[in-house]
């Protein structure tokens, strides 16, 4: 009976530790994942233009459950190289940007409804770079940039362009590819 009691205590201890292991594994997995979206888009860090990761039609993509009606393009960024400016010329097709952290999770999103005179332009920067940009700014000529603060140094932008009809798919792909992402040198 005493041995059985010890066995029960050991099992209970095991269950409690298992709970801790479970929580630790769930919390750690986005940081340990080597097959997540960021590691797959890292190759686009040096590109000046967004790279297509899922062309309309949904063929040849690593994205799970791709929407055949959308073109998905991406640019990875590393804010150690300076703030990143993402710019697109909007058209008749719905276009949206979403900004993702390296460890997954969205920190900002915008659609082309926010475009000004057919241009949608966002500058992602760190809090420090924002302070520097504000300090360097000319008071009489304030910048019109839309600035957002990124919570992490690395991340990626996802560009989605919807083609409501199959005949618009090539146009959607061209629009997604034409999005530029350039690292700005600190002034």
């Amino acid at each position: 009976m005493r041995g059985f009691g010890r066995f029960v205590i050991a099992t209970l201890c095991g269950l409690v530790i298992a709970l801790g292991v479970h929580i630790a594994a769930i919390l750690a997995s986005p940081y340990l994942a080597d097959q997540d979206a960021f590691s797959k888009v890292q190759a686009t860090l040096t590109a000046d233009k967004a790279q297509i990761i899922s062309a309309p039609g949904g063929a040849n993509t690593w994205l799970p459950a791709p929407d055949p009606a959308t073109a998905v393009a991406t640019c990875a960024f590393d804010l150690r190289n300076g703030p990143m400016r993402v710019a697109a010329r909007t058209g008749s097709l719905p276009l949206s940007f979403s900004f993702h952290k390296e460890t997954g999770g969205v920190f900002f999103a915008v659609t082309d409804r926010a475009a000004v005179r057919g241009e949608l332009e966002i500058v992602a920067m760190t809090a420090r770079q924002l302070d520097e940009a504000r300090a360097a700014e000319d008071e009489n000529d304030p910048s019109r940039d839309v600035r957002i603060v990124a919570p992490e140094l690395q991340g990626f932008v996802i560009v989605r362009v919807v083609a409501p009809a199959p005949s618009l798919r090539p146009q959607a792909e061209e629009m997604a590819k034409a999005v530029s992402c350039t690292a700005e040198q600190d002034a």
């Binding site: 997995s29 986005p30 797959k40 969205v106 989605r160």
Partner: peptide, 26 residues
Amino acid sequence: GSPEADPYMRAIIARRSDVPFATGEG
């Protein structure tokens, strides 16, 4: 697709190598 995603959502997104819709995007 929001900053309030819980740890399970983050882990699942990383596991699927998925890029979820952001809130406001769709």
